[in-house]
Design a protein around this nucleic acid. Structure first.
Length: 251
DNA sequence: ATGGAACAAGTAACCAAGGT
DNA sequence: ACCTTGGTTACTTGTTCCAT
């Protein structure tokens, strides 16, 4: 979707972008060809040349900086190193709360980082990724991570599904949305919520029972693997919402 | 060329919202 | 308890484009 995107140009909103599409200018190359010699459009052409270069180099940060934050979903299929991320903590963020588990799903495998074991490995490992996908991560997970690991560098490109889904009129918490989509969880994970994750950790600390910790880690893993399916659905719906495919098909 | 209507984008202030 | 974004509203600025 990026090479059809013009909304990152200054003074360009959805309406101007749509007008370009209607006039048959559907790609950056179309624009450069059509306006390349125009003095008036020089600024725009320079910007689009940078965009082409950034896409070629796989520079996800460029698009994170230039796309309006509600439009970062457009970059999603262009980068394959995507971290679906979710954390469990001892609470909602009072001074003494800390992270118990971080789960990262790369689309194939789940990596679990556990307090007291390998939690710190997260700081190095997360640098491999171009983008991060969360549910409500802009509020909760990412600030909590930044507070816990000062100076950690997280991928700049971020799709927060809570907001993306809300703009598609899908609202409510993650569990409610999963039910709406018919996603199933393992039997012993059904009905668990974030507060249960707090209690499982406390129980693990008290009893040192590995099966309790294992259940907490699997609960976390279930959250992130569902994020991928939601992201893919969100991408197709958001793309449909722009009207791009419909407009281009008419040509 | 110029004025101005119509609409888009930008800005600022405020509020609502889900997660562990 | 705590976080940060998007939606809403009301307003200002900017752009397009038609009538003159």
């Amino acid at each position: 979707m990026l090479e059809h995107t013009f909304i990152h140009l200054p003074n360009f909103g959805p309406w101007r972008e749509r007008r370009l599409w209607m006039n048959g200018i559907t790609t950056w190359d179309d624009f450069l060809e059509h306006y390349g010699s125009s003095q008036f459009h020089k600024m725009f052409c320079t910007k689009l040349a940078s965009s082409k270069n950034a896409l070629h180099l796989g520079d996800a940060e460029y698009f994170a900086n230039n796309l309006p934050s509600g439009e970062s979903w457009r970059a999603f299929p262009h980068f394959n190193k995507v971290a679906y991320l979710d954390i469990e903590t001892t609470g909602l963020g009072s001074a003494t709360d800390y992270i118990t588990v971080i789960g990262v799903y790369d689309g194939e495998k789940v990596y679990s980082y556990i307090h007291g074991q390998n939690l710190d490995d997260f700081v190095m490992d997360i640098q491999k990724y171009d983008a991060v996908v969360t549910f409500n991560g802009a509020f909760f997970d990412l600030p909590f991570i930044r507070k816990s690991f000062t100076g950690v560098s997280l991928p700049k490109l971020h799709v927060d599904l809570r907001f993306a889904l809300a703009s598609l009129n899908v609202t409510g918490g993650l569990k409610k949305i999963e039910t709406k989509f018919g996603f199933e969880r393992e039997d012993d994970l059904k009905g668990l919520n974030g507060y249960d994750a707090v209690r499982m950790w406390q129980s693990y600390l008290k009893t040192k029972d590995k099966t309790v910790l294992d259940r907490l880690v699997r609960y976390n893993a279930a959250d992130i693997s569902n994020l991928k399916k939601l992201m893919e659905w969100t991408y197709t719906e958001k793309r449909l919402q722009t009207g791009f495919d419909e407009l281009v098909k008419l040509k």
